[in-house]
Amino acid sequence: MDGDTLARVAYLAIILVALGGWVLVEFRQRMGQALRMALAWGLIFLGMMAGYGLWTDIRQDIMPVQIQAGGAIEVPRAEDGHYYLTLRINETDVPFMVDTGASGLVLSLDDASALGIDPESLMFTGEASTANGIVRTAQVTLPVIELGPFRNEGFRAYVTEGEMDGSLLGMDYLDQFHMEFVGNRMVLRQ
């Protein structure tokens, strides 16, 4: 255990001793009540942990995923009004927000790193105009992109230096599809 970890453990121990001392003084005549309160808070904590653990299961309802139906990909509209697709790039699943206002396929720095692209090695010589202003971009080539049965090799994409919550799927990629909007679903066919 290094010195930093030891200091943190000591700090937490001091806090626990102080809290335990306060509980003993405050509830010295009512230990049953103190135990009930501790049990209630413990159950609340366990409930929050269980809710967090179930988040991956219920997340599908909040951000639905695409389904392959015959030769088409159907994408349900998410609660926020956007469409989200997951592309398989070099054997890694990358979520994208469909953005028909974007001209290219734009990777966030985090997604680029997850694909093995070293941001330090990129040359950010391009520029893109976004809702947040002008950002610098670096062009990259993605060896393999798959969306269900559809496959592209050597696809040009851009990595942005700008702050992005996720990656954007623009018209460079979407132009290869016939896009149709049926109710709250987007259908892509080639």
Rank of each mutant, 00 (worst) to 15 (best):
F27A: 01
A102N: 08
F150G: 09
A112N: 07
D172L: 14
R59I: 00
G70F: 10
F155C: 03
L105V: 12
I44E: 11
N152Y: 14
G133Q: 02
I58G: 00
L109M: 13
I44Q: 08
L142D: 00
S108G: 07
G133F: 03
W55S: 15
T160A: 03
A78R: 01
V187H: 08
W41G: 14
D118G: 09
L19D: 10
Q176R: 13
M179G: 10
M37D: 11
E180Y: 01
P149D: 09
V17T: 14
G70N: 09
D99A: 05
D165T: 09
D57V: 08
M123F: 09
E120G: 15
G154A: 06
V23N: 01
P76Q: 04
V140P: 04
T100W: 00
D111H: 15
L105R: 05
G162K: 02
W41E: 10
D172Y: 13
F45R: 07
T130C: 09
L24Q: 12
L122Y: 02
A131V: 15
A102S: 09
L24E: 15
G47V: 02
R30T: 14
T130Q: 05
G71H: 12
E161G: 14
M171P: 11
E91Q: 14
N184R: 06
I67K: 15
E74A: 09
R77F: 03
N132F: 07
F181K: 12
I73L: 02
R156W: 09
V106D: 05
W22K: 02
S121K: 14
G51F: 11
R156N: 13
A157D: 15
L115M: 05
D99W: 01
A40R: 07
P76K: 00
E120S: 12
G47Q: 11
P143F: 00
I14F: 07
R59F: 00
V25C: 07
L122H: 06
V182L: 11
L16Q: 12
T86V: 13
M164I: 06
G126T: 08
I58D: 00
N152T: 04
M37G: 04
A40L: 13
Q60E: 04
I58A: 01
H82W: 02
E180C: 03
V159C: 08
P143M: 02
P95S: 01
A102Q: 04
L122C: 04
